[in-house]
Amino acid sequence: MNSVLSRYKRLASIGAIAVAGTILLSSCAANEAGTTDPSAAASDLAGTIDGSGASSQGSAQEAWVAAFQTENPDVTINYDPSGSGAGREAFISGGVSFAGTDSALKQDEIDGGFAACVPDTGYIQVPAYISPIAVIFNVEGVDALNLDAPTIAGIFKGTITTWNDPAIAALNADATLPSAPITAVHRSDDSGTTKNFTDYLNKVAPEIWDAPAADPFPYQVGEAAQGTSGVVDAVTNGTNTIGYADASKAGDLGVAAIKVGDEFVDYSPEAAAAVVAGSPAGDTASDTDLVISLDRKTTDPTHYPLVLVSYIITCTEFVDAEVAPVVKAYVQYITSDAGQSEAASSAGAAPLSTDLSAKVATALESIK
Rank of each mutant, 00 (worst) to 15 (best):
G47Q: 02
T121C: 01
F137D: 01
D199E: 15
V326K: 04
H303N: 13
C28E: 14
G122C: 00
G51W: 13
A54K: 04
V309G: 11
P301F: 06
E207Q: 09
V291W: 14
N172W: 00
A245V: 14
V275K: 07
A349T: 06
G230F: 04
P73H: 04
N2F: 03
K157R: 13
V126H: 07
A42I: 03
L356N: 06
V96I: 15
R10N: 13
A128M: 13
P127W: 07
D289Y: 04
A66S: 06
T194L: 08
T194R: 05
T284E: 11
P150Q: 02
T314H: 04
T194A: 11
V221Q: 08
G251E: 00
A224N: 00
T241H: 11
D120R: 06
I182L: 12
T48H: 14
A277H: 07
Q69N: 11
A42T: 06
D44C: 01
A149N: 02
G261P: 05
F217K: 01
S43N: 10
V260K: 10
S52E: 13
P269G: 08
S188G: 12
F318G: 04
S55P: 02
Q61F: 11
N2E: 08
A225V: 02
G238I: 12
G227F: 03
L294E: 13
P119S: 08
I182Y: 11
T239V: 15
S39Q: 12
K368M: 01
A175D: 00
A224D: 00
Y244C: 07
I77N: 09
S27G: 15
E207N: 09
G112Q: 08
L177D: 05
G238D: 11
T284I: 10
Y79M: 10
T316F: 00
D44E: 03
A256S: 03
V96S: 10
V142S: 07
R88D: 04
T193L: 07
I160S: 01
P305M: 13
T70H: 15
S357E: 13
V265Y: 03
V118W: 07
Y330A: 14
G94D: 10
S103Q: 09
I49Y: 04
Q69E: 13
L290W: 14
I23G: 01
T161K: 12
S366F: 01
T236D: 06
G58I: 09
I312L: 13
P305Q: 12
G339M: 08
A90C: 05
T70P: 08
T194Y: 06
V185Y: 07
L364A: 04
S27E: 08
A224Q: 01
A134F: 05
D233Y: 12
A18F: 12
S366M: 02
K106F: 03
I92T: 05
N72C: 13
E365K: 15
D215T: 06
E109Q: 12
G227N: 03
G58V: 09
K195R: 13
T288N: 07
D210W: 02
D295N: 12
I168F: 09
A349D: 05
V96F: 09
A99Q: 14
D190R: 14
A271F: 07
P351F: 05
V291D: 15
A170P: 02
T183K: 15
N78I: 14
A40F: 10
A46V: 00
T36F: 12
S131Q: 12
G230P: 07
D295T: 09
T161W: 06
S191M: 05
S346I: 05
S103H: 09
S84W: 09
